[in-house]
């Protein structure tokens, strides 16, 4: 009897469970946005380096019944460098994947001692996505920067969106420097510049490397050699007086930093790479360099580390190089 009762209750329990399990969950319609709202995303990836832009896309909208957009502004915690601006055009992406601009106001004005950029809408619109380009200033190196995006609407409402804080790299960047065999061949990491023999003679303590090209031996080709290197790596080179620094170099291949390679590839060299690279026992010359190769550099006084990327080489004895420099 007990067994039969147990079976019955078990059957009822199973039926009830299956009934509950099959219950359809009712779909709840999402609440439509009924007020001024905004959103933001950072489009730039990789380290934030002084002189380069950080790009944001700031979207804002208000229901048509509530009014229209009046103005949009961005405030950075550190004033942006020259070239910082908030776009006065809203972009949408067409079916071909191309960003199409639609002008919504006059070009942005910079206010609050360079901290803020503001765009006032001149068209009657209730939705827009504006790009913001923040040029990282030199004084922001090693600090963090944050942004407050905000929008005002005709009904007197304001919406805002905070982004950051973002770490700003301690690196400096210099792109597309042309070096040539025998003429503009002297490289200063401190100045991030190329000099000829006459200029180099005036600043011997600043010259860290000499660029040279030798067709023979065949493994030599394009080289970056420190003035203090063995004479066999400086064949036929008469160094200006006073050049004697011994700079450590470490060859790399396949490290095409996106910033140095003019926005090709998807690799980034960051502060941590320059601080952690092992330069112990590295030689003071790097020969056999080719396009898309690079060298880690540590100056003789250990004040700077750098990454020099070879953008292109020319068999007539010249090359285009770019560099990232980190102050230790």
């Amino acid at each position: 009897m007990l067994y039969r009762n147990f079976n019955f209750f078990f059957l009822v329990w199973v039926l009830l469970t299956s009934l509950t399990a099959c219950q359809e969950e009712e779909y709840i319609l999402p609440e439509p946005i009924s007020q001024l709202t905004n959103d933001c995303l950072k489009r730039t990836i990789g380290p934030s380096i002084a002189s380069l832009p950080i790009e944001f896309a700031y979207a804002m909208a208000i229901p048509k019944s509530q009014g229209k957009l009046v103005s949009a502004q961005v405030e950075a915690s550190i004033p942006g460098g020259t070239g910082t601006y908030l776009e006065h055009r809203s972009y949408y992406t067409n079916s071909g994947g191309v960003d199409i601009p639609v002008t919504i106001g006059s070009p942005s004005t910079v206010v609050d001692a360079g901290k803020s950029s503001k765009v006032t809408f001149t068209v009657d619109t209730n939705a827009a996505t504006l790009r913001y380009y923040y040029i990282v200033p030199d004084e922001a190196k090693g600090q963090t920067v944050s942004f407050t995006f905000s929008v005002n609407s005709s009904d007197g409402k304001t919406a805002s969106y905070k982004m950051g804080p973002y770490n700003i790299s301690k690196m400096s960047i210099k792109k597309n420097l042309t070096v040539s065999n025998g003429t503009n061949a002297f490289i200063s990491i401190e100045d991030m510049a190329i000099y000829n023999a006459t200029s180099a003679a005036a600043i011997p303590d600043k010259v860290d490397l000499v660029y040279l090209y030798r067709a023979s031996p065949t493994s030599f080709t394009h080289g970056l050699v420190s003035p203090g290197a063995d004479a066999s790596f400086l064949p036929g080179v008469t160094l200006p007086s006073g050049l004697k620094k011994s700079t450590k170099l470490r060859k790399v291949f396949g490290l095409q930093d996106r910033n140095l390679a003019n926005l090709q590839f998807g690799i980034y060299v960051d502060d941590i790479d320059l601080t952690s690279v092992d330069m112990t026992d590295m030689p003071n010359y790097a020969i056999g360099l080719r396009a898309e190769a690079g060298v880690w550099v540590e100056t003789a006084d250990k004040k700077y580390r750098a990454y020099i990327y070879i953008n292109s080489v020319n068999a007539t004895g010249s090359a285009v190089i770019s560099m990232l420099r980190y102050t230790l």
Binding site: P217, S219, F220, F233, R250, D281, M282, P283, Y285, I287, G288
Partner: peptide
């Protein structure tokens, strides 16, 4: 090895 090879590394 090639001329200039740094055999320390």
């Amino acid at each position: 090895v090639l001329f200039g090879t740094d055999l320390k590394n």
